[in-house]
């Protein structure tokens, strides 16, 4: 039986669950896992004080119950599969290098922050800074995929260097802030000030928007690489309209305050007047 942790109650302080990932629980019994020390606020507590633990450790780990104050789920994970049945706290999958995390509900801030590899799937919405770099770091996410079925908060993909942040809904303001490279796709559009300081990254907006003045309109065309990426999003479970796969996108190049080699691709059946 898959190792399953069910939250007994909402913890008195925020919990760092990063010690429990498939590679550390593999081969361990429920009793052993229940004895693992984790941080709850300033204190260290046993897992068994906060969770009912059942099953046996394999490549899969399941978390259930009220997990809104449980942070850093799957942080640093290198392989295996972790399923969150419900919503979870901040920093889920942060600095993860491999494996897959699936969150059935919403995720807090910094979901998949500084991701290195693997897949983070959020069936609900994500808080601010999904896939972003932490304050003070130059390069954030450097690989892997973050798929958010709902909306994403502010600064999704900020400082990302490689990888994909795909948002089925809408991205908040400041998406792709200081992006070095990589791709942020928001099928229902991105908020204000997208791509500020973008060097080589791609920001894809499924709804019309007026880019920052640092961007210049290049052309309306059918980007072949984007078609490939959108087909990948379909594989990952996002609903991508056929029109986006076959239709024309307007390419804006920028940010001219940086290299001007980044881009914002905007899907607009009736092109928004430039200027």
């Amino acid at each position: 039986m898959t190792l399953t942790l069910t939250a007994l109650t909402s913890p008195p302080a925020r919990v760092d669950l990063s010690p429990l990932v498939p590679e550390t629980t593999r081969g361990r019994s429920a009793i052993e896992v229940a004895g693992t020390a984790i941080r709850c606020g300033r204190d260290r507590v046993g897992v068994g004080e906060l969770f009912a633990v059942s099953g046996y450790g394999t490549d899969e780990l399941v978390l259930r119950g009220e997990l809104g104050r449980i942070d850093r789920i799957g942080a640093g994970m290198r392989g295996g599969r972790l399923r969150v049945e419900g919503s979870c706290g901040d920093h889920v999958g942060a600095r993860m290098t491999g494996g897959e995390i699936v969150i059935d509900g919403d995720a807090g801030a910094f979901a998949g922050a500084e991701l290195r590899g693997g897949l983070v799937r959020i069936e609900g919405s994500a808080g601010a800074s999904a896939g972003a770099g932490y304050p003070g770091t130059r390069a954030g996410m450097s690989g892997g995929e973050i798929v958010i079925a709902g909306d994403a908060g502010q600064e999704a993909g900020a400082a990302m260097r490689r990888g994909l942040v795909a948002i089925g809904g809408r991205a908040g303001d400041g998406a792709g802030l200081r992006m070095l490279a990589g791709t942020v796709i928001a099928l229902r559009g991105v908020g204000a000030e997208a791509g500020m300081g973008n060097k080589r990254g791609s920001i894809v907006s499924g709804r019309p928007l007026r880019p920052l003045p640092g961007y210049a309109r290049a052309v309306r065309y059918r980007p072949p690489a984007l078609a490939l990426q959108l087909r990948r999003l379909r594989e990952l479970g996002l609903e991508v309209p056929d029109a986006m796969l076959t239709g024309a996108w307007t390419r804006w190049a920028g940010d001219r305050l940086e290299l001007s080699r980044g881009e914002i691709l905007i899907f607009d059946e009736e092109e928004v007047a430039a200027g």
Binding site: G163, L164, T183, P223, L228, Q229, R232
Partner: peptide
Amino acid sequence: FQASKVVAGERFWRIPVMEGEFL
């Protein structure tokens, strides 16, 4: 002016050409 994209772990190159891009 070329750029690359990694899709499902595979890298592709976008080479700008007169028509648009060669992938």
